[in-house]
Computed example of a mutant assay.
Amino acid sequence: MQLELRHLLAIRRIAEAGSLGMAARRLGISQPALSAQLRRIERVVGGELFLRGPRGMEPTQLGQFVLAKARRVLDEMDSLGAEARGLVPGGPLRLGCTLLVLVDELLDRTDTVMVGQELSVDVGFSVTTLVRALTAGQYEAILYGEVNDHRVALPDTSDARTVVPCEPFCVRLSAGHPLASRDTVDLADLADEQWLAQAEDDDGGPEALIAACAQAGFTPRSRHRTTDRKIGHELVAAGRAVALTQPTAGAAPGTVLRPLAGTPITGRIRLAWNRATVTPAQANLLHRAAALSYLALLDTNPFHREWWDAHPGLHPGVD
């Protein structure tokens, strides 16, 4: 067997994730398949690349050598598409987004703010996939979320700007839930609930929920996972799950949104773009469109408007 780009990518993903399970999810394959692939790669290079340590899968000395080479090759391949596209100015801008609440509003805002600029918007579920597409030149810009202290690693060829520095996540409950009548909900009171797993599992959200629940004295249980908002809302309405939600999320039949006491989980919205294909003026317009899209949703839930007005230092700068 000869090493291929997919093998180098697998090595890099394992190193980034620190676990085979997380790396497999980000690569879109099963953990047993990734484990078997790693063993084949190790046979080719002649030794173990990773050992399980206190911080997860850690590269051996050989692994560090191979990983450095893999990153160099992958970075060169990633820049090829972006640099080639940069030689053809004036084309349409392609924006990739995670499933943020503001995306629906963004479609209208970009038409208004970026008059005359051809723009396409794609929605995905993985921040990792969006970053790789940005690096490879498949998108000129991406809009994504980060939760709590999580920071998305961006390519050196990109610039980034924060759209919303902080928003307090809330919880969606069935309208018939015993806690639905409260103004705020303590996370500890949700210890016995089933949580709807988040579609975006590489934005720091799952880790933030686990950490916050641990602080509240329990481990969250997740039974359901869906990327379809309607199905997720139906599961919550039926009382089969509760869900962590952005505070600008809209109403759904049979459900209510309630803020979490003490704001244990917060989100951040970021815009990143390829310097070779997006001008500073275009980046400013994209940022303005995203910021206006978010501001248009502030009155969706009165509790969030109240929180927002009490934190003026977090407001995006929009002329």
Rank of each mutant, 00 (worst) to 15 (best):
L5Y: 03
L8D: 00
L9P: 02
E16K: 08
E16S: 15
A17N: 01
L20F: 07
R26I: 03
L27T: 01
L27Q: 03
S30L: 11
P32V: 01
A33Y: 14
A33N: 12
L34F: 03
S35W: 14
Q37G: 09
Q37H: 14
L38E: 14
V44N: 03
V44P: 05
V44L: 04
L51G: 05
E58S: 11
E58W: 10
Q61L: 15
Q61E: 15
Q64T: 10
V66I: 15
V73C: 07
D75A: 03
D75G: 09
E76M: 12
D78C: 09
G81Y: 09
G81I: 02
A82Y: 05
G86P: 09
G91I: 04
G91T: 09
G91K: 07
L93T: 00
G96N: 03
C97D: 00
L99D: 13
L107Q: 15
R109V: 11
R109S: 13
R109H: 15
D111C: 15
T112G: 06
V115F: 09
L119C: 13
D122K: 13
V123R: 01
V131I: 06
R132H: 08
A133N: 02
L134E: 06
T135Y: 08
E140N: 14
E140G: 13
I142M: 00
L143G: 03
E146R: 07
N148P: 00
H150W: 10
H150M: 13
A153M: 13
L154F: 01
P155S: 02
D159W: 11
D159Q: 13
R161L: 14
R161W: 10
C166G: 00
F169W: 12
F169M: 03
C170I: 01
V171K: 03
G176V: 10
D183I: 09
L187P: 06
A191P: 08
A191M: 06
D192G: 14
Q198M: 11
A199M: 01
D203C: 09
C213M: 01
F218G: 04
P220N: 11
R221Q: 13
S222G: 11
R223P: 11
H224E: 11
R225E: 05
T227M: 05
D228R: 10
D228N: 12
R229A: 08
I231C: 13
I231S: 15
G239M: 10
A243Y: 08
L244Q: 06
P253S: 04
T255K: 03
L257M: 04
R258Y: 05
L260S: 03
A261K: 11
T266K: 05
G267P: 04
R268Q: 01
I269S: 14
A276F: 07
Q282L: 12
R288F: 09
R288L: 13
A290D: 05
A291S: 13
A291K: 04
A296C: 08
L298R: 08
D299A: 12
D309Q: 15
P312Q: 10
G313Y: 07
G313R: 05
L314D: 14
P316G: 02
V318E: 08
